[in-house]
Design a protein around this nucleic acid. Structure first.
Lengths: 333, 333
DNA sequence: CATCGTTTTGCAACCGGTAGCAAAGTGCGG
DNA sequence: CCGCACTTTGCTACCGGTTGCAAAACGATG
């Protein structure tokens, strides 16, 4: 009475004078149905405001067109464009994204189990990694939804990842820094994860070791948070005499780089890039503003997302892929 | 064989030597079931990796514990903390959020219909509004999921909104500006929506009209985008002689304010706050950094979200509510 | 040990669709 | 006007749970 319950296929069938199976067919692209009865059905459906219940459909088709997106790092403003591009690309494929917030109350495992119960078609880890939880992965039911990692190299065998090529990008950055005359580089790292073994840090450090025998000091922020970056820089500057300091700091991403610039300038009065040059990674829009004017390596976000979606739609083989991005040179180096 | 299909309640029932209805009861809090058989069932369920299929459950219970979150403004970095707080609060209630990207390919109406087909329990419009689409709302089926508006006043009758109180916040800001000696204020507005009739702009302008008979010029950015803000400021400064310019600019949110600061400083060489003072709105973390050091009005995000969730869980009456925030005075005024 | 109230369990029906097959309808050649 | 192939429609069964009621088991009481 007060809540007019939704019209069902049976209601439409009655109104259109056909069986409910014919109604389903009218809403199934490519189904075998006479043109005149499809029109009749759609007309009645519109009149009754009928739209197929996707829950019921999913129950039999075993596909929900839902993808879970796991995010654990809301302090990093680059997550916003990632979410934007990802949701738009999914929606273009008639899919939708369930955004799951990973934090101390809700870990990766709970999130995957939860997503699994909701029968999502896939789980995408966005710029996050399992760390030591990787081991627990084996406790997951064998029938869990397929996992993918976006914008971070996968540390877990058999889990495909789409990321920006660390080797190529670091080569471009190092070439630029070397050409600019920098000789005392430092590296600021984010969360410690197993992936560092393959990641940006190692490629960066290997270059300087080979090229000049330099051991690059690591400033460990511990997380991709500008406050953590500030803290790590503070610690380094306080315990390092001016003469021995690095002349350029490569930051694992833009969020760190921005924290570093802020702290270097306003807390230590350093000029960027004269006293300390800074390089970021991601290509966050914020870093492009005149205040920061940060040299950064832009990740090919659109292509990465397109590649990932091709995988999960089965249009392309699911395996880890590294794509090249683009070095954007600005005033911070 | 290759894909071990999920265990169902019937499988667990067989293993535990009970009927499938007993299995359901073991997973239903407060159901009538003997303790020993509950344990037996849970034990077998664990062994088989069984977890109830939420799709099937939702089909009969008519509740999905899914909420659609509609976002149309990914350029505004304040959306990230909003999403963080919102998803966390939902997850604490065993709910999950479907993030829907509103853009030129996918408008509000399509999003609501889509969410409706997925049987979401509610739709939350985050800091967005219908504008002229409000009219089309009547074309929605009467049985659509309940709509809520977060962080924006609702322009549509009967749709509850939880927002930051514009009257109180603007009074605090105006009092501060007046006390600081500013007398020639300007106002930068974002998207034109019907809600402006009730919103920040009118409260701001009304004060200056009453207090000093001043008509406040409006700099219309058209959207909450720092580039649009830059453009609007540029247009204003270029056509206004220095002597006639405003001495303080109230921006409808922090994203605009940041664009304004950037442009004023780096493009026009203006000092903030000496040549032009700036006030923002939201309390975005980014605005707190030394580079911007923006005076802003912090929205009570946690409380707003808690209030909204109380409404949609039916714990509190669903009606529009305005909550007070807090003026944070920094160096930009 | 019969009786009665209470807890626990089983069952038929249903939620709203889809798969796959069988029956009915249609058009065309001979 | 019949037979055949092809299109269209209807139907049974099922997806994996939940609802609400009836039957069974339990346990205390007289």
């Amino acid at each position: 009475m007060s809540k007019p319950s939704r019209a069902t296929a049976a209601d439409v069938a009655l109104a259109a004078g056909v069986s409910k199976w014919t109604v389903t067919r009218a809403f199934t692209p490519g189904a075998s149905i006479a043109e005149h009865s499809r029109e009749r059905v759609l007309q009645e459906a519109a009149k009754l405001g009928y739209r197929p219940n996707l829950l019921a459909r999913s129950l039999t088709t075993k596909t929900t067109n839902l993808v879970a997106i796991l995010v654990d790092d809301f302090a990093n403003s680059y997550k916003l464009p990632v979410l934007e591009v990802l949701t738009q690309a999914l929606q273009a494929e008639q899919m939708a994204a369930v955004l799951i917030n990973i934090n101390q109350h809700f870990d990766h495992l709970s999130a995957i189990l939860d997503a699994d119960q909701r029968q999502v078609d896939a789980v995408i880890l966005v710029g996050t990694d399992f760390k030591d939880e990787a081991l627990k992965l084996s406790t997951l039911p064998a029938s869990r939804p397929p996992l993918y990692v976006l914008a971070r190299e996968s540390t877990i065998a058999h889990i495909p990842a789409v990321s920006c090529d660390a080797r190529i990008s670091m080569a471009a950055i190092n070439q630029h820094l070397w050409a600019q005359g920098y000789r005392r580089p430092g590296f600021m790292s984010g969360p410690r994860s197993l992936s560092t073994a393959l990641g940006r840090k190692n490629h960066f450090m290997a270059f300087w070791q080979q090229q000049a025998g330099t051991t690059v000091p690591e400033l460990a922020a511990g997380s991709y948070d500008h406050r953590a970056a500030a803290q790590a820089l503070r610690a380094y500057l306080q315990q390092t005499p001016t003469a021995e300091r690095i002349d350029v700091l490569m930051c694992e991403n833009d969020a760190l780089a921005i924290g570093v610039i802020e702290t270097a300038r306003h807390e230590f009065g350093l000029r960027v890039p004269q006293d300390l040059a800074i390089v970021g990674y991601d290509g966050d829009e914020l870093a492009a503003t005149p205040s920061f004017n940060l040299t950064s390596y832009r990740q090919p976000l659109q292509e990465m997302v397109a590649t990932l979606i091709a995988m999960l739609k089965g249009r392309s083989e699911a395996r880890s892929i590294n794509l090249p991005g683009e070095l954007i040179i600005r005033g911070s180096t």
